[in-house]
Design a protein around this nucleic acid. Structure first.
Lengths: 176, 176
DNA sequence: CAATACGTGTTGTCATGTCAACACAACTAG
DNA sequence: CTAGTTGTGTTGACATGACAACACGTATTG
């Protein structure tokens, strides 16, 4: 599939005090950088959206989801966003309570509800989108469009690899 | 500083149903991909470490921290890892209770404690490190060393930009 | 030497998201 | 029709980490 089977570990390691102990480098280990960047970004965005719009990061993601897929249900949203269905269910309950989203019963299946944004919800989405795009632009300050493309490509490949590992875990292990 | 002042927003947007509504693309928006990848990776790693070693993701990060900076204190660890000092304090309490880390009172300052790993803690760190490196290798399957370098570079630049924005927020706003 | 400001770490409270268990609708097979 | 199975959504219990308040040791300044 690829011609680069193995990356040398010492790309990511740091030696502490004359190779006494080895551990992950904070600045060269991709997964460390990735989680660090994402956590800080999310936290910072959550604070901003909460302060400015009174909405949490999860509920903002839900607004995006409902804009993208009007009429979607809990299971679909959970799968697409990679977030537990319980969290989705609670987020939708919050949005409904705030009058940002509403559900319509599906004719065919009594359980599934078709969720979509109210007018108020669409307004809020559009206002937050401006801020979110602005923020993303700031995060990518100094990147060329080509580099952004590459960056996205790397992240997508990372996700594909993660999928592969998880499928493997699921099928290879007898438990669960 | 850079010659790329502005990236066009439509790099990241998707049109829903004939440009009726615009929102973030899940597959082309860098920040969406970043948080998605990081969250899924962290969760998957947390499950693995919990199952295999009975330790959470936070405590594993703490093991790395203490390997890197033996004798460090709560404040230093909190700053380096970008995690709240309360979480650090609680993680250290857990590690001490499990006999993985121990604290030594500093002579100069009664408050600061110098934390380090016990032999048991170092053993566990080394065992998990093998698994973590293996996992990272799988996530970067198909990447050339050059690409990994670029990927890390992008993430570092992202973090630098994030720093800049937060400094700006902190100084520009009168509250807090 | 107070008095105050500052740094360090701990604890309470809250939001978020996970897992497990459950209720219930819909489908399938005897 | 009944029983078992699967899919969908909700709820409870829990882990994690953020924020705020606090206790207390150290530094600074009059």
């Amino acid at each position: 599939m690829t011609d680069n089977p193995v990356l040398p570990d010492d790309l990511f390691l740091v030696n502490v005090e004359e190779s006494e102990a080895q551990t992950l480098s904070f600045s060269r280990s991709t997964t460390v950088l990735l989680t660090f960047a994402a956590n800080r970004f999310t936290r910072s965005a959550a604070r901003l959206y909460q302060d400015e719009f009174g909405i949490g990061a999860m509920d903002w993601r839900m607004l995006v989801m409902l804009t993208r897929e009007p009429g979607c249900n809990v299971a679909k949203a959970s799968k697409t966003m990679g977030i537990d269905k319980a969290a989705v269910s609670r987020s939708l309950a919050r949005l409904e309570k705030s009058g940002l989203a509403c559900a319509e019963s599906t004719a065919s299946d009594e359980r599934r509800k078709a969720w979509s944004l109210t007018g108020h919800g669409r307004d809020l989405h559009d206002r937050i989108l401006d801020v979110a795009l602005d923020r993303q632009r700031q995060m990518l300050q100094g990147f060329t469009p080509d580099e952004v493309e590459q960056f996205n490509g790397f992240l997508s490949r990372f996700l594909t690899n993660l999928d592969a590992v998880q499928d493997e875990d699921a099928s290879g292990q007898n438990r669960r």
